[in-house]
Design a protein around this nucleic acid. Structure first.
Length: 254
DNA sequence: ATGTCCGTAACCTACGGA
C-alpha cells in the first residue's frame, strides 16, 4: 500500500499537477494540505472518476485538508477538537487510521499564531496519546517544524525563527513520544530529505530546503514500511507546489 | 533585492499569508 502526503498550496492552482501525479504514482492514500478551497469547489467527482473516494475539510481562502483513497475511506472525523480552522481530517483507509494534518505556521516567535501552533501540536499529541492502540495509524502532513538541524539546510539562517525553536521541537517530541515513528528519518538517517523549498531566491535550485512534512506511524506499521521517498520531481517544472510529496510503501498487514 | 506564489478584492495593482 502506497501512503502519501502532499501540501499542494491550493488544489485549484495545482489541479493539473495533482492529476498528473496521481496518474503517475497510483497512490492508495493521499493526505492533502492547503487545498485553499471551499467544500463546494473540492473536486470530489474528479477523484471519483479516477477511482478514489475523498473527504475534505475546507475553509475557502486558507488552509483546507483532505483525504483521497482507493482502499476505502470510512469514519471520517473533521477538525481537531474545538479548533475552528480547517487543519485536520482523519479516516480509516485500508485498515489504517489516517490523519491529514496542517499545523499552523506560527509566523514569528512573538506572534499569537505561534502560541496557537504550540497549543495545536499539544492537542494533536493528546489525540495521539488517547488513540485506540489496536488500530494501525499514520499521521501525515505539513507539521511546519524541522525536528532537528539535519532537517534544515542552514541552521544559522534560522536562529530566532519559527520551525526550529525549542518549544516547537519539544511539541513534536511530545507527539512522537505517544509511540510514533518518523518514517522518513528512519528510512534515511543521514540524508536531509527536505520536503519544502521557498519559492523565493531560487531556493530549490540552491538546495535551500527544510524537512517539515512527515509521515509518522505506530511501530508495528513502521515494520511494514519498505521505502520512504520524497518526490522531488514534483517540486520541478510548471507551477509546482513549494512542498514535495512524501511517499511510503507499506507491505500488507500480516 | 523582501528575489515567489496563492487567493481575494478590486480593478489593470495591492494586500495578507505562507
Amino acid at each position: 500500500m502506497k501512503v502519501t502526503t502532499w501540501n499542494v498550496n491550493s488544489l485549484t492552482a495545482r489541479w493539473p499537477r495533482v492529476l498528473e501525479w496521481i496518474l503517475g504514482h497510483e497512490p492508495d492514500v493521499v493526505m492533502l494540505q492547503e487545498t485553499k478551497q471551499s467544500d463546494e469547489k473540492f473536486p470530489a467527482s474528479a477523484f471519483a472518476d479516477l477511482g478514489y473516494e475523498s473527504a475534505h475539510l475546507g475553509q475557502g481562502q486558507w488552509n483546507g485538508v483532505a483525504l483521497v483513497s482507493r482502499v476505502g475511506l470510512d469514519d471520517v472525523v473533521r477538525g481537531l477538537g474545538e479548533d475552528t480552522e480547517a487543519r485536520f481530517i482523519a479516516a480509516t483507509c485500508g485498515g489504517l487510521r489516517v490523519h491529514s494534518c496542517y499545523v499552523p505556521n506560527g509566523r514569528s516567535l512573538d506572534d499569537a499564531h505561534y502560541a496557537y501552533k504550540l497549543r495545536w501540536l499539544g492537542d494533536l499529541a493528546e489525540l495521539a496519546r488517547s488513540r485506540d492502540r489496536s488500530v494501525p495509524v499514520v499521521f501525515g502532513g505539513d507539521f511546519n517544524v524541522a525536528m532537528s538541524d539535519l532537517d534544515v539546510y542552514d541552521p544559522s539562517a534560522f536562529v530566532g525563527a519559527t520551525h526550529v525553536s525549542e518549544p516547537e521541537r519539544a511539541a513534536m517530541r511530545e507527539l512522537l513520544a505517544t509511540d510514533l515513528v518518523d518514517l522518513g528519518r528512519r528510512a534515511h538517517p543521514q540524508e536531509p530529505e527536505f520536503t519544502w523549498w521557498d519559492y523565493r531566491q531560487g531556493s530549490f535550485r540552491r538546495g535551500w530546503g527544510l524537512r517539515i512534512d512527515y509521515l509518522l506511524s505506530d511501530p508495528m506499521t513502521a515494520e511494514r514500511v519498505r521505502t520512504v521517498v520524497v518526490d522531488r520531481d514534483a517540486r520541478k517544472g510548471e507551477k509546482p507546489s513549494d512542498h514535495a510529496p512524501v511517499i511510503a510503501e507499506l507491505d500488507d498487514a500480516v
